Amino acid sequence: MRCQTCGDATSPSFNECQNCHTPLGQPAVTPGLETFAVRGIGLAASIAVGATAAFYLLAALSPVYGRVLAEHAADDRDADVLLGAAVLEGLLALPFAAAYLTAGILVIIWTWRARKNTDAFPGALPSLGAGWAIAGWLVPFANFVVPARVVANIARDSLRRRGTGALVAVWWTAWLVFSLGERLVSLKDEMEYAELPEDPVGDAEFQAFVDYYQGALGRHAIPAIACVVAAVSFIVLIRRISAAQQDRIARATPAWPVTPGMTMAAGTPVVPAYPQPQPVTAPSPQVVADPTVASPEVPPVPGGTIGA
């Protein structure tokens, strides 16, 4: 006998599959429970996460351009050249913010759908309700722990692979380093930029801009590396989980007769529970009726009337 979830051979000595922990005799998906497609939304979320990381890398490398402009401004004694660096930072901040917001919305939708699917997976033991797949990202302080727990549960109940827990840990650690580091670096940049001279004239004042951009480049290195690690590891998790859940939903079959009006899991073929009547194509045989017995007819007698 083989497990309907992962296809591995099962043993009657155990009550569940030793690979995916699905109880023996249970279908891949519990009939009657709704499931959701996650492959498309997972692909969209992966693209948005990758775009967010790319835009942040461009923003983190913008101090290189700022330093070049500051050196040219010092050589030419032209403070207007410094405006180019500020304009570039503003232009890069807009697409980063848009990509970040888009990625956040798509990731929340994907997380909720993937978490709801595990409710229909026999053997799954999620520790948090599906509502936390949304609230976990939004509630202050809880968003430092809850999203990692939700994704860890989803990955465990969907993949059953060694190293999945470690991949979740790498993703979440890198995300926290990026999230906190980016805020601290931005605050430090604002404080130091506010101390720069508004209208530099001498060599020392122009050199202050050069030193500022040099320091900003170094400060952004750690958040930039953490951003790349978090993005790559999370994209891998999204793609693996999405593929595993879609394959499991596709293997779902009814565990009992299907009756009209029953809600089936997504991707489950509906098989009639009872044989359907076949249409009659041949003409019915003609039945010859037996002749009925009737009284013999009496010829009328002339003038014979009743009571005559």
Rank of each mutant, 00 (worst) to 15 (best):
V139I: 15
V170A: 12
S233I: 13
P272T: 11
G261I: 08
V150L: 08
L159Q: 02
L237P: 02
T5A: 15
A48S: 12
D290P: 10
L83K: 08
L101T: 14
E71K: 05
A93Q: 09
P272A: 15
A308F: 06
R183K: 13
L167R: 09
V228S: 05
T52K: 03
M191S: 15
A28W: 02
I222D: 03
C3F: 00
V201R: 13
K116Y: 05
C6R: 05
V151K: 00
G42K: 02
D119M: 05
D247Q: 14
E205M: 08
E192H: 03
V107G: 04
V81N: 12
P257D: 09
W171V: 06
I241E: 06
W112S: 02
P299T: 06
Q278W: 01
G304Q: 11
A216D: 02
L180T: 07
V139T: 05
N153R: 01
G307I: 04
A243K: 11
L217V: 01
S233P: 04
V68Y: 11
Q276D: 00
A86S: 14
A70C: 03
V301T: 13
G261D: 02
S46I: 03
C20K: 00
H72S: 12
R161G: 03
S295E: 15
Q276S: 11
D211L: 14
S62A: 13
Q4M: 13
I222C: 05
P95L: 02
I154H: 01
R115G: 12
P260Y: 08
P296K: 10
A224P: 08
S13I: 02
T111C: 15
F209P: 01
P279T: 01
S46E: 05
K188Q: 10
D157Q: 01
P140V: 06
